[in-house]
């Protein structure tokens, strides 16, 4: 892969609530290369959305705050960037699309108005030129009757069309990174297929790096080059999409994949991970997944595992992959895990 365009290094975003400090993002590091699609997967509350909001400095503050860590975009650390600088970056160099296209469009302004605002914010263009650009963008994302749609209001469009408008807006300044936070979760499968198709085309044609936040492993398999799996605010595993889905290393990833009902297979009983996703807190000691993990041993409850190497460009936050772990404790569990 070519050059790194976005790099997160040990990012900590905490929420300071009445009931204490909550480390929603707890030491997250990963990279996005130019033109690459990186998936961030995890269940609700794992910190994947807060991670993406942190990159754009959109975490509601208070109560949230980036406590430490770096967000390197090109040669700049966005975690330290001023609000003025962030306004130049948002929608221009890094854009974002959200899950619910209805709430992210302003119901009082026409589609054209909102697109033109985004374009004129970052590009020196007359209103006329900007409108022409807006229509071009709507064409690009496959909206029929684009010259009429520019003068329509968001409520006149269907969910899939609104998400296309959001993508048009996000792509209008040709960003280098597009952050898509659950872009198809609110859409039906046939519409989801259209939107994913569109995003894939844009990625290929414009060489835009995409950070795709999702809980759907199916979407990940379709779209991503590399995958980062998050659990309780931490990255637990990283690898290429094939490695993650075909040969998961971390017990959580393994459990997650096994608990999916498969459309092409017959099976009687679904595997399920016992228990529920924990609430994260500052006091937590040991592996976050240990209470639900069938391979957990003493060390998992007393010590925090780090991300251990598990192959080329692969890592897993699990003591089973710690080379220093006594062979005895690890080996039989590991062979079990691999079988």
């Amino acid at each position: 892969m070519s050059d790194v365009i976005l790099e997160l290094e040990d990012l900590h975003t905490h929420f300071f609530t009445d009931s204490g400090e909550v480390p929603a993002v707890d030491g997250v590091s990963f990279k996005v290369h130019k033109g690459e699609v990186v998936g961030v997967v995890g269940e609700s509350g794992c910190g994947k959305s807060v991670t993406s909001l942190s990159i754009m400095q959109l975490v509601p503050s208070p109560p949230g705050r980036i406590v430490s860590g770096q967000i390197n975009f090109k040669d700049e650390n966005l975690a330290q960037a001023s609000e003025k600088r962030m306004r130049q970056i948002r929608g221009n160099e890094i854009s974002m699309i959200f899950q619910e296209p209805m709430t992210s469009l302003d119901p009082l302004f026409t589609i054209g108005n909102q697109l033109i605002e985004a374009i004129r914010m970052h590009r020196k263009m007359s209103k006329k030129e900007a409108k022409r650009k807006a229509i071009d963008m709507l064409n690009l994302v496959g909206i029929p009757r684009s010259s009429e749609v520019v003068d329509e209001y968001p409520h006149q469009l269907s969910g899939g069309m609104r998400q296309r408008v959001m993508i048009a807006m996000a792509m209008s300044c040709d960003p280098e990174v597009l952050i898509a936070d659950e872009p198809t979760t609110a859409l039906d499968v046939t519409i989801q297929a259209q939107i994913l198709d569109l995003m894939r085309d844009l990625n290929k044609e414009h060489n835009t790096g995409i950070l795709l936040i999702t809980h759907d492993l199916g979407v990940v398999a379709e779209m991503c080059d590399r995958v980062v799996v998050m659990y309780a605010g931490q990255v637990v595993e990283e690898g290429t999409v094939r490695e993650i889905l075909k040969d998961p290393k971390h017990p959580y990833t393994k459990g997650l994949i096994r608990s999916l009902p498969k459309i092409h297979e017959k099976e009687q009983k679904l595997y399920s991970i016992p228990g529920t996703v924990p609430k994260v807190s500052m006091e937590q000691v040991g592996c976050r997944f240990a209470p639900r993990c069938e391979y957990a041993f003493d060390r998992c409850f007393s010590e925090d595992p780090e991300l251990y190497d598990a192959g080329v460009e692969r890592s897993s936050r699990c003591f089973l992959y710690d080379d220093n772990e006594e062979q005895e404790a690890g080996s039989h569990v590991e062979s079990d895990l691999r079988s």
Binding site: V189, L196, G218, A221, K246, H264
Partner: peptide, 15 residues
């Protein structure tokens, strides 16, 4: 149209 969590199953898609 259903995305499948398996990189080997990329079928012919009717969009």
């Amino acid at each position: 149209a259903v995305p499948v969590a398996d990189p080997d199953v990329i079928g012919d898609r009717v969009i």
